[in-house]
Design a protein around this nucleic acid. Structure first.
Lengths: 193, 193, 193, 193
DNA sequence: CATGAATGAGTATTCATTCAT
DNA sequence: AATGAATGAATACTCATTCAT
């Protein structure tokens, strides 16, 4: 089950395409295998079961995305800039891969609680970044002192998530990256003094 | 398929309990029928198919909830008060029926796009209420003139939804109604001048 | 279960129409009831079960047809005339009611062995008429002395049945009554000296 | 869906046995699978659905039977001999496999029109053979010049079919092969000058 | 006699997973 | 490592029949 062998990524990429195209419930293992160019049984050399494909998919795609943000966000100075950076990266990342966006915003949610719990584990890293932005903002005086960090975090994540989901459900018919400064302004206004 | 006969509501109530308890994918029609105290076949005298139970469930429970808000919110004067009223009703409504909360926040989303689209139709009424609050606030000068109504709406809905979902995923272990004033303050701050 | 009450015939007529139109397997009791203008439950005041509708249908429609032939055929003198009379009546009767023809030739055969056995009981009367024609023909010297009555009977019935079935399967697109003299000539030729 | 793999024939043979024994409507897929010694799901690797089993059954069993007749009948010289050959082969073939006879004469007819139409496609080859016999007989002067080929074909097929069906419905209680010369004589008499 | 709401037994089909090759 | 044929559990839905009114 080595994650570094080429077929591991090959299967995950196939899964994104198939699920985005046919929806989660019509994405049989055999369909993913065919798209990946491997035999059905080969899937099980790399993944414990079908759910594991989904979880690995999220871990792999979002995990590295989160890691890179964590590194790069250090370079931003003010909390406002950090918030802008987060929103920009998040929206830009998904705008560049509409298949992945459809999978994360719509299809991945059609799963049972177990999978969603594991997905939330991955998301924790992302939520921590938000928390760090909020802390730094409160500390520096940019944000309201009495800001409830947990609520503010839910507002930030909930808003960005809703913005992306709406874009996907509207079938990408407008340029979501144009919304980045507006979302930033809106959320910043909600946090700052 | 008369929605006024007692068994219609009886089956919907049973569906809420069963789905909340076992999750959507483990909620067989026969399980719902048993919980409702009717025969399996009786379900199909009131619902076209299993999906129709879910859609009707949302239409019935959320539909009347939205209608009542639409009426009562007129009594509130300022946009700030209207916003508070909306948040309070939304959170209170779901805090009073944890089964229903689990269904709307988690289980109902484990469905295919067709169902989601029908659910979104019901939600449109709710989003309109938010839009009206925003308009009245902008008009009265309470809110920023340059506020992007669509984005602000997504922020408000996205935040409340995320707050409730987080509460459900944490298994109701804190009193969510205590968050009402905080959520109000946060969102108001994001909108006002 | 009185066969003389008007609803008895009303239901049978409805059954012929519904079965001819939708085929046997799509002819639910409720559909027949609706066509007959009675409640589903009313069917069971006149018929033991669904199979009984079919059997009664055949008994009623074919039974009286056979009886009338039995009476009228006496008037014919020679075996050849009798045979002509039989063929003419059989083909004319079904050509006048295409719905009934579709039911007897196609739909009624899509049933299980029990029903077919009961149908065969009704047919025995018909086969007896054939036997009587054959006997009189052999006796009078019109037909071959060594004719195997059972086989000849199967030939006569099998041929007429096949002729009518072919006509129904070709959707009545030619005038079957024109075939009467030809069929008579063919079968007569097979039997006579 | 390869018709040459051994399980294909294995399943068809099992289907003949099960359907002959229990009747078409009591022959569940699982029953056929069990008889064939395969899992239920395996059926669907070889057949599109349950109906496809029936259609394939007829195509396979009757198709090759018809093909062989087509080849061998060339060796017969006179139309009378060809007719004898056809009757002999037809009756002998079904007399040797009573299960198959029950299926073709009784059970296969308990199906809907779609299946019947597909079965008729297979039968067309058989009817062509009859037509060729009739043509050669008319040409050689053995048969009546004015013979209506379509009617004569219906007589020949209808008679043989009725003879076999009667034998099956009488539960094989007499030796049907003894009827071969009699049927031949009867039908020949009907056709010849 | 007549109704029609309620019943509940019965079954074809899918598809994740395995394992002999 | 890779294959893909074989497995078999699991379930929504229909419709003939009943029976309280």
């Amino acid at each position: 089950m080595n994650r570094n062998r080429p077929k591991f990524k090959q299967i995950l990429d196939a899964a994104v395409v198939v699920i985005a195209e046919h929806g989660y419930h019509s994405s049989q293992v055999s369909k993913i295998a065919k798209q990946a160019g491997v035999a059905d049984g080969t899937i099980y050399l790399y993944f414990k079961n079908k759910e594991d494909i989904l979880i690995s998919l999220f871990q792999e795609k979002m995990g590295q995305f989160i890691e890179r943000i964590q590194e790069d966000i250090q370079k931003e100075e003010t909390a406002s800039e950090k918030l802008f950076f987060l929103i920009q990266r998040h929206i830009t990342f998904l705008s560049e891969d509409q298949h992945l966006a459809a999978v994360t915003q719509l299809e991945l949610r059609q799963t049972n609680r177990d999978i969603r719990n594991q997905i939330n584990e991955v998301l924790k890293g992302y939520l921590q970044i938000i928390d760090e932005i909020l802390e730094s903002g409160i500390e520096s005086g940019e944000f309201q002192e009495e800001l409830d960090a947990r609520l503010a975090r839910q507002m930030i994540f909930g808003t960005i998530d809703e913005v992306v989901t709406t874009w996907v459900m509207n079938e990408y018919k407008y340029d979501i990256t144009e919304l980045i400064p507006k979302v930033h302004k809106l959320l910043l206004h909600g946090c700052k003094r």
